[in-house]
Amino acid sequence: MSAILPPAERLWYKHPIDRVEGTWIVIALTWCLIMFGMMVGWHIWGNQNLSTETYRTTPEQFVVKVQDMVDKYTVRTETDQEIPVVAPPPGSDIYLLARLWSFWPILELENGKTYRLHMTSMDFNHGFSLQPANINIQMVPGFEHVVTITPNQSGPYSVVCNEFCGIGHHQMVSRLYVK
C-alpha cells in the first residue's frame, strides 16, 4: 500500500513494470552507455587525456634530475628568491617539483613543441593547477608522474597549488612561460 508498510502484494516482485517506468529505464540506460562510450572514445580520438605513466621515486632521486636540468638550461632567475627560469630544448624530459610552499623551477617552453613533464612532491600532497588554461593534476609524494604536453598558446601562465598543504598553502604560487 505505502512505502512505510510492507507491500500489500506478497509477490510484489512479479508485478509487471509500468510502461512509463520501463521507457524511462531504457532511455536512462541508453544514455549511460553513450556516456561510457564517450569516456573511452575520448581516449582514442581526444587531444587532452591524462597520461598514467608513473614511477616510484624519492625526494633524493628526483632532486638530482631537477638540479641537472637547472644546471644545464637556466636562462635567468626571477623573484626575490631567485628561482631559476629554465628553457630546456624541445622534445626533452623536463622536471617540476613541489614542496612546502613553492614550485621549483620556473619552466619556459616553446609553443607547439612537445615535452615530457615529470612532476612529484617532496613532502605533502600538492596540486598542479595551470591557470588560466585550467589544467589540474594531483602531485603525490613518492610518485613521479610523467605527462606529455604540447603548449598551443603563448603567454605567461600561473601555477597554483590546489591541494591543501598546510599553513602556507595559499602562498604557493609560481609561473610558467610559453614563448
Binding site: 569516456m39 575520448w42 587525456n49 591524462l50 593547477s129 585550467n134 593534476i137 591541494e163
Partner: peptide, 16 residues
C-alpha cells in the same frame, strides 16, 4: 557529479 566522474572533464575540475 556525473560530469566530475569523467576523466577528461575532471582535469578541468579537480580540486577547484
Amino acid at each position: 557529479g556525473v560530469m566530475m566522474g569523467t576523466e577528461q572533464l575532471n582535469m578541468i575540475i579537480h580540486n577547484t
